[in-house]
Simulated assay, not measured.
Amino acid sequence: MEKNNHKITEFILVGFTTDPVVQLVLFVVFLGVYSRNILGNTTLMVLISKDSRLHTRMYFFIGNLSFLDLWYSSVYTPKILVTCVSEEKTISFAGCAAQFSFSGGLGYSECYLLAAMAYDHYMAISKPLLYSQAMSVKVCAFFVAASYLGGRINCSIITKRIFTMNFCNDNVIDNFFCDLLPMVKLACGRKKGYQALTYFLLASNVITPAVLILASYLFIITTILEIRSTQGHLKAFSTCSSQLISVTLCYGSILYIYSHPRSSYSSDRDKIVSTFYTVVFPMLNPVIYSLRNKDVKEALNKLFK
């Protein structure tokens, strides 16, 4: 007899291992990463809000990126920490749906926000005379609001589709969180329709922003090559390098996971990559955007003084 989603009240998260020693080591590692994530992103948001030198359009976007990263990691990491030190590996059906919904909304919003940041860099480097008018405070606020709203609406639609599926196999998720591909793997019937949903997710939330980012940086590179002075080259590349690193890390891991939906969704290799973009990557953004930036360093020294 088939089981449907109404009869399943909870899911079992397999996680990484059942070895208690390894689980304890993972708990310490994840706790350290999560602590640095909270400290780094919170500090960066405080600096941007308090220091007048950081009241620019670029840092307005970076502050919102830190806000998304802080909450994105917080959706996953506390549950991972509990799973590492507890024999209780279950998550309720409602809890799984909430985790899927919040994480997806934040993740999709970040993809859109990175595209908006790339456009901001394009206007600053390629159209400097029009920059102040084209990227006014209202326009920047609109981009950020559209990123949040677009991510939320898109994820709400996908969450509703996923959690009204029939789950006729078991309720064991071979992963450490409720993700799209493991959930589809548990479903029965109409799986082709949900495979199509996976491709829609990839196209609308990952590939489309990635194409916009790529186009922006192609124009930026063209503009940089037209600059004659070496100092101008270095300044332009310095402006873009931080986001290029961030985009490469973010999209590289996401495309790896979602570009092969017919393969084994929950392999150990996929788990490692998933861990990177859900737990480790949100911690790296404050480092990427602050360590190489003189203004942030000066604002941090001022805050400590």
Rank of each mutant, 00 (worst) to 15 (best):
A134Y: 03
I12H: 11
E110I: 08
E2W: 05
S109L: 15
S216A: 10
A210F: 11
R292C: 13
A145L: 11
A203T: 14
I245S: 04
E10A: 13
I125A: 00
M1H: 13
L65A: 09
S290K: 07
Y72W: 06
S266A: 05
V139P: 00
L197S: 06
G104C: 11
K3D: 15
T278E: 00
Q195W: 14
Q133R: 03
E10S: 15
L180A: 07
T9D: 10
V25D: 04
V46M: 01
L218T: 05
T77Q: 00
Y131L: 01
L106G: 07
P209W: 07
N293L: 08
L284I: 06
D51R: 11
S156N: 07
F102H: 03
F30G: 00
Y72I: 08
A236Q: 02
C96A: 03
F102M: 06
L255P: 02
L181R: 04
F60Q: 15
K89Y: 02
I257W: 00
M165S: 06
F281R: 12
F143Y: 07
V21Y: 07
N171I: 02
S109E: 06
V137M: 01
S241L: 11
Y112M: 13
M165L: 15
T18I: 12
S238I: 15
L24N: 09
L249C: 04
L44D: 08
R292G: 13
P282G: 01
P261Q: 03
R53C: 06
V29E: 02
V247T: 12
V29C: 03
K89F: 01
S92I: 03
R152A: 15
L114T: 06
Y112R: 07
G63S: 11
V85C: 03
I91T: 07
A124L: 07
L39A: 10
W71F: 10
Y265P: 14
L68G: 01
L39Y: 15
F142E: 13
A146K: 05
I91F: 05
G151I: 12
I158L: 12
L249I: 03
T223R: 06
L70G: 01
T17I: 11
L65H: 05
K185I: 12
S204K: 14
L255I: 04
A187S: 10
S109M: 14
Y199W: 12
S73Q: 03
Y122M: 14
M165D: 14
S290H: 14
R262V: 13
S103K: 10
L106K: 10
D174F: 12
V85H: 02
L129Y: 01
Q99V: 09
G40S: 08
V33F: 02
R228H: 15
Y148C: 09
P128H: 01
Q195P: 09
G63L: 04
S242T: 05
